[in-house]
């Protein structure tokens, strides 16, 4: 079952200009609901194309299914979760049904992943150098000595001072910012086609977050990247295009300019208004009331309706993700398009 109507999906594809590197179609990820006959859909019919050289922001509150979407791309959805529908193509190759060993190749070679907590991606009991060289040797067919040189450059590339000495360091001996840089070095070491950064700066202090975003901007300006974050401010920093996700679904997509200047989906409007800005009038923050549906909730109709100021009776039916005035939207009652830039 797909909620993206065929025409919308087709239109989405034709609207794309650059080469499509990664193509996700009707992805569904389910978890069993303890004690209940139906499963919980953490990802519910997600489709998108990632174009060469673009930074695509996947934005939404915790629990909206961003990480499960990312983990699906790497074939590492945690059990008992499972991809039950959909397809994932990396260039012309289908990667969602690959055998385990080939998937591992994809993970090391083609898609690099940066997690929020570097300790998830790094082995705490092995030195930074041994983790980097191992990955280079496994995927690049190089000698140990060559791999060490590659590892050195990988650290140097991501702005780690005194990279030679850091090769010997263990992850816990580094500051949070440096650990995140090591994680990025590891993700980049085999020159993957796609980089996924999942809340990679969320746990960092503002000035360190700025350093990492700067690194992404400088070092990865031509890379093809998916940036996952719950913070529209962070997405605004480096993304070219934004996909807003809510309760397992994409509810709005657009260029960064479109989404920031004329958000159409009430949820997107909500995410933007909730961020405190430096405004000396200090208007009251506008929170999104309530909380997102949890795994226990059975959602009918528009999943955002219970929290939406603009909900109407027709919102009891589920809105499809469709083109509305040139924007991909899943909403019966989108906000005005009048402020859209010409």
């Amino acid at each position: 079952m797909s909620i993206v109507s065929e025409s919308a999906a087709d239109a989405a594809r034709t609207a794309l200009s650059g080469d499509t590197i990664l193509s996700v179609k009707d992805l569904v990820v389910e978890f069993p609901r303890p004690g209940q006959p139906t499963n919980f859909r953490a990802v519910n019919g997600v489709s998108f194309d990632l174009r060469q050289g673009e930074t695509l922001g996947l934005v939404g509150e915790s629990g909206s299914g961003k990480s499960m979407t990312a983990l699906s791309l790497l074939g590492i959805v945690p059990a008992p979760g499972k991809i039950i529908e959909g397809s994932i193509n990396l260039r012309d190759r289908r990667i969602d049904d690959l055998p385990v060993n080939e998937l591992r190749r994809v993970r090391g070679n083609d898609i690099g992943m940066v997690f929020q907590d570097p300790m998830t991606g790094l082995n705490p009991v092995r030195s930074v150098g041994s983790q980097l060289t191992e990955s280079a040797m496994r995927h690049q067919n190089v000698s140990k000595r060559e791999a060490l040189e590659i590892a050195y450059h990988a650290l140097d590339d991501v702005g780690i001072p005194a990279p030679r000495e850091r090769l010997q360091a263990f992850p816990h001996e580094l500051s949070g910012g440096l650990r995140q840089r090591v994680m990025i070095a590891l993700a980049l070491i085999n020159h993957p086609e796609v980089i996924i950064a999942d809340e990679a700066t969320t746990a960092l202090d503002a000035t360190i977050q700025a350093q990492i975003l700067d690194l992404f901007r400088e070092r990865l300006s031509v890379a093809t990247m998916i940036l996952i974050t719950h913070d529209m401010g962070v997405a605004a920093e480096i993304c070219d295009r934004i996909m807003v996700m809510y309760a397992g679904r994409i509810v709005e997509t657009g260029t960064i300019e479109e989404v920031l200047t004329s958000p159409r989906h009430p949820y997107t409007v909500g995410l933007l208004s909730a961020v405190p800005k430096f405004d000396i009038r200090r208007p009251k923050l506008v929170p999104i009331p309530g909380i997102p549906p949890t795994a226990e909730d059975i959602v009918r109709g528009c999943p955002f309706a219970p929290r939406c100021r603009f909900a109407e009776s027709k919102c009891d039916d589920r809105p499809a993700l469709e083109y509305t005035d040139g924007r991909l939207l899943a909403c019966w009652n989108p906000r005005s398009a009048t402020e859209q830039p010409q």
Partner: peptide, 23 residues
């Protein structure tokens, strides 16, 4: 630097940042 480092969702991606070095 703190002000400059705080991400705000406003258009203008080429915003200049004061990025402090080190920890």
């Amino acid at each position: 630097a703190l002000l400059s480092a705080t991400p705000v969702p406003e258009p203008g991606g080429d915003r200049k940042r004061i990025v402090l070095t080190g920890d």
